[in-house]
């Protein structure tokens, strides 16, 4: 197990190098010129040269790439092109906002969806099952953006139950986050419950369920005690792998409700050609993604004694 983790951590190095190179390629070599974007089309030659030198863009690509790698190793990505703030400050604030936006609906939504999915699999093949399956496909066929637009219009603009958009730090942020939480929870129901239902129905056919029934266990006991415990393995792995996306945030949601999370920061950075933020954001999410991938595999082996890591 220990050696497995070490080896996987070593495997992350070439992947991260690749990510760094890809980011560099896309934004430095092919991307728009940040200096032009910052100073406008009619800037003087001297100003452009000066800013280029300040941002280190006058050096060769190899030198710039080397500097980027050093930044990744030292976790010091410098300052934002557009505001001059320290990147670590920007990201700490952004991560908190993104997490407070996505974590509560993720935790409570997942628990709620598991219960609903169990309930539905209890009635498998009956009309409740068929109707709900149909409804979930319907709900998945509507664009995320449409949910946001319509629910914001109805619940915030029309009925005035929630503030329309914006954000305040501290506990007063809850009133601003209620509606986004509700929307995230609602949208996650379709795909989540369908997935969990499939997982449960896969388990229902297995031998241990038949044994439990043969022992005379009641149907609720079979579902909640025997089945849920075994179904937790695929549910757990499917859930853990989604955690990095909680931190990197919900781009459209943050943009629409003007929440200053990671997603909003990144989109603003892209629009302004703020390369340091983009670089830091890409590398950070790549590290998170790889780490949680590893964590999923390790968890898999920890909860399921049949799985051996090699």
């Amino acid at each position: 197990m220990f050696f497995y983790v070490i080896r996987r951590l070593l495997y992350m190095i070439p992947t991260l190098l690749g990510v760094a190179f890809l980011t560099f390629l896309l934004f430095t070599i092919f991307g728009e010129d940040p200096v032009r974007q910052a100073l406008g089309l009619h800037a003087s030659e001297e100003a452009i040269v000066a800013l280029r030198a300040k941002w280190g863009l006058d050096q060769s690509f190899a030198k710039q790439f080397y500097d980027f790698l050093v930044q990744i190793l030292t976790f010091d990505y410098g300052e934002s092109f557009s505001t001059g703030e320290k990147l670590s400050d920007i990201f700490c604030g952004g991560v908190l906002v993104s997490l407070s936006l996505t974590a509560p609906p993720f935790v409570f939504g997942t628990l709620f969806n598991i219960v609903i999915a169990l309930f539905i699999s209890y009635f498998r093949g009956k009309s409740l099952d068929k109707i709900s399956t149909f409804l979930f496909v319907v709900s998945m066929s509507i664009s995320y953006l449409v949910y946001i637009i319509v629910l914001q219009y109805l619940l915030a603009y029309r009925f005035g139950w929630f503030p329309i958009q914006g954000f305040e730090p501290g506990f007063s942020s809850i009133s601003y986050l209620m509606l986004p939480w509700f929307i995230i929870g609602l949208v996650s129901m379709g795909p989540d419950i369908r997935l969990f239902r499939t997982i449960f129905l896969d388990q229902v056919k297995s031998d241990y369920i038949r044994t439990a029934r043969a022992k005379g266990a009641s149907e609720p006991r079979v579902l909640f005690v025997h089945l849920l415990k075994n179904a937790m393995i695929p549910i757990l792995t499917n859930t853990v792998i989604a955690i990095p996306f909680l931190i990197t945030g919900a781009f459209v949601m943050e943009r629409y409700f003007a929440l200053p999370g990671i997603g909003d920061i990144t989109i603003t950075a892209i629009n302004e050609g703020d390369f340091p933020i983009i670089k830091a954001m890409t590398v950070m999410s790549a590290v998170l993604y790889s780490c949680f991938n590893l964590l999923t595999d390790v968890l898999y082996a920890l909860v399921d004694p049949r799985v051996k890591l090699s």
Binding site: F27, F30, Y289
Partner: peptide, 15 residues
């Protein structure tokens, strides 16, 4: 796959 989908999409369509 390590780069978030939407970031990759944005990056490529900018390039």
């Amino acid at each position: 796959a390590s780069v978030p989908d939407i970031l990759l999409l944005i990056a490529i369509s900018y390039s």
